[in-house]
Amino acid sequence: MTIKVMIVDDSSVVRQVMQDVLARHRDIEVIATAPDPIFAMTKMKANWPDVLLLDIEMPRMDGITFLKQIMAERPTPVVICSTLTERGADITMEAFAAGAVGVITKPSLGLKDFLQDSSADLVSAIRAAGIAKVGRLRTLPRPQPSGQTQERMHAPKLTADAVLEAPVGKSTHLPTTEKIIALGTSTGGTQALEVVLTALPRTSAGIVIVQHMPEKFTKSFADRLNTLCEVEVREAQHNDRILPGRALIAPGGKHMVVKRRGAQYYVEVVDGPLVSRHRPSVDVLFRSVAKAAGRNAVGIIMTGMGDDGARGLKELHDTGATTYAQDEASCVVFGMPKEAIDLGGVNEVVPLDRIPAVIERHGR
């Protein structure tokens, strides 16, 4: 199946370079480009795209306004093209809240070379968006990056062995009164995590999260969720304690590893190669939780494209942790949960709206 793409960006250089990059891939066809949303809407009426690649700051109408209009009239997968700045990250969080399913980043300088170098990220984002079921985003209840692009293009697909050793056998940890909840997600995850975290009480068990997202964006994402949730949500820092009522989100561009010191759990934020072509990687997080907590942990894999987290969840399962996968009906992309189910690492498959209750039950 060919994915029909429209590029909406006020920079003619961006439009041309993206068009050239995408033209190299047989499964992607750029059907039109436009310098702003007004021109785009006229062209879309004649030939509606499968995926919209959308800049945020444009003349006549900004990308957020246009995105909201599209999602209200005819929900369509949208990938945001955002600048690598704090303001760009904040606006991108607004775009995710409005229904965008992905983000690619661009610098303010060296744009042409950067876009060519980051072609793997661009193509991956388009393909993920092409299978995303964005209509599901409208039913949800409500109250990816520059440092990795060259690596992702040329590096082999590494496992979590590149960062830490695998656990061996069943967990030997004694049961504790405190559980660790480990969540892993990707495409569609920003909206899904909002559904889950906003439903939790401040007495919830401590939570560690990997959401595939570029550097600088995870802090804005965590800060936004923190304003909406009873639990404290923050971007993880090295040696942060995992505590009841706190959710730690792995920073973009770093791996997050859970460790245990006595009866206390904490995280280390570490460098390392891409694992399952991601950093942070869900596989790395889940493996570290399996080693540090074992049966004192709960692992949950949620919506996302690819297989990152599937092996790690199986390792959690095999050490005695309780494991869950989000069901296909509520996923925007069923890739990651399906891979985990197929590996035999899932105790139970649950819909998104039941995940908060699962977390509360294990946290008591």
Rank of each mutant, 00 (worst) to 15 (best):
V21M: 04
V21E: 08
V21R: 00
L22R: 01
A23R: 10
A23S: 15
A23W: 02
A23N: 11
R24D: 14
R24Y: 07
H25V: 13
R26F: 09
R26G: 14
R26E: 13
E29N: 13
V30I: 10
I31H: 02
T33A: 07
A34R: 01
A34T: 05
A34G: 06
P35A: 10
P35Y: 05
I38N: 12
I38A: 12
F39Q: 15
A40C: 10
M41K: 13
T42Q: 15
T42W: 11
M44K: 02
M44Y: 09
K45E: 15
K45M: 15
A46M: 13
N47F: 13
P49Q: 08
V51N: 03
V51M: 04
L52H: 00
L52V: 13
L52Y: 01
L54Y: 00
L54I: 08
D55L: 08
I56Q: 02
P59D: 11
R60K: 14
R60E: 12
M61H: 05
M61K: 12
M61E: 12
D62G: 05
D62W: 06
D62M: 08
G63F: 06
T65L: 14
T65V: 12
T65Y: 11
F66N: 02
F66Y: 12
L67I: 09
L67A: 05
L67H: 03
L67W: 04
Q69C: 07
Q69E: 14
I70R: 00
A72M: 13
R74W: 10
R74F: 11
R74A: 14
R74H: 14
P75M: 08
P75H: 09
P75D: 11
T76G: 04
T76S: 05
T76V: 09
P77I: 08
P77K: 02
V78E: 06
V79F: 01
V79K: 00
C81I: 15
C81S: 13
S82E: 07
T85K: 10
R87P: 03
R87T: 14
G88R: 01
A89D: 09
A89V: 03
D90F: 11
D90G: 10
I91H: 06
I91M: 13
M93F: 06
M93I: 10
M93G: 06
F96H: 03
F96Y: 08
A98K: 00
A98E: 05
G99C: 08
A100K: 00
A100I: 04
V101D: 02
V101L: 06
G102P: 05
G102Y: 01
V103G: 03
V103C: 09
